[in-house]
């Protein structure tokens, strides 16, 4: 049985944690002052790919589109999934791309890797700096892979080349659903933040520890595994990438205005016991359903 062929799409993102993030006076992110790291969702996706490597044996390529410094995201991802290859798609031409144009680059890149014969492609749930989870499914679609989103755990039936995954679907205003799905390879899996690896034997866990150590060693020399591709090397159609290939534009950015008053508030002094007593009585009245407003 041959190893699975896996690609992981990751993203370099600003570190939004307090003590690291910095904002401009107009409320926008100060990107120059804010360090970038492997996005937290990308990290979960990398760990999910590592699971397949430990459990089934897999060859993993981690890919990202971004500026040259995005190679640090690849390194951090390699640390998590013991990647065999790191691919950076980097070209000025890609700048300013919306999700569709980004997906075009990623699709082209991944098709090139391993001659396009991927079994599983992983991505994070979304990026934390604005992208809202479109790039994954759009890349999946362009690749022609079945897209499985919000996956919280998965296993591969190597014999039948089928993935079984559990997905956590939340329907706003309704209950949440955990759905178990089956899909033939190749699939594109967007990993839910609540993903948890489901190793179930001691030997798998020992293997996990062993590979993890290897990953650490490899990631120290990550440049050895790194390949950088520009637009020409990828062979993308310049009309489909970057700004020219983006259907959408950002037209304007403004402050969200204050909503207009819809209720007339009675102002009560919070230090007056009498007034608070009245508020308490009012609360019971409201809850008792006797009077509403």
């Amino acid at each position: 049985m041959s190893d699975l062929k896996i690609a992981v799409i990751v993203k370099l993102e600003p570190d939004f944690s307090e003590g690291n993030v910095s904002y401009n006076a107009d409320g926008t992110l100060n990107r120059a002052e804010t360090k970038s790291i492997l996005g937290p969702h990308s990290a979960v996706a990398s760990s999910a790919a590592f699971y397949a490597k430990v459990k089934y044996g897999a060859r993993i390529a981690v890919t990202t589109m971004g500026p040259p410094i995005a190679d640090t995201a690849l390194q951090q991802a390699q640390l998590l999934c013991d990647a065999d290859e790191l691919h950076l798609y980097s070209d000025r031409m890609f700048a300013g791309a919306d999700t569709l144009a980004t997906a075009e680059v990623l699709k082209t890149g991944i098709s090139k890797v391993e001659g396009g014969k991927m079994d599983i492609v992983f991505s994070g749930h979304r990026a934390s700096d604005g992208e809202t989870g479109q790039t994954g499914p759009q890349t999946a679609w362009k690749l022609g892979f079945t897209f499985l989103g919000n996956v919280i755990d998965y296993n591969v039936d190597m014999q039948n080349r089928v993935v079984r995954a559990r997905r956590m679907i939340s329907l706003q205003g309704f209950y949440d659903v955990i759905e178990e799905v089956e899909a033939p390879l190749p699939v594109f899996i967007a990993i839910d933040p609540s993903y948890k690896a489901s190793f179930n034997t001691v030997s798998q866990r020992l293997a996990f520890e062993k590979y993890q150590k290897e990953a650490k060693e490899r990631a120290q020399n990550y440049k050895q595994y790194l390949k950088i591709f520009n637009a020409q090397q990828l062979g993308v159609d310049p009309k489909l990438v970057g700004l020219p290939g983006s259907p959408t534009i950002v037209y304007k950015v403004e402050r969200i205005p204050k909503a207009k008053a819809s209720r007339k508030a009675e102002v009560v002094d919070g230090s007056s016991r009498d007034q608070i007593a009245k508020v308490a009585a009012k609360m019971y009245e409201v809850l008792g359903g006797m009077v509403i407003k």
Binding site: S262, R263, V268, D269, G270, S271, R273, A277, K282
Partner: peptide, 27 residues
């Protein structure tokens, strides 16, 4: 303030204990 029926002016750490006391008293 424009979206409420009663606006209790005060810090929550001061108001809530008072409110709790009254709620328990009136229950």
């Amino acid at each position: 303030k424009d979206e409420c029926d009663i606006f209790i002016k005060g810090r929550m750490e001061d108001v809530i204990p008072l409110l709790l006391e009254e709620l328990r008293k009136q229950k």
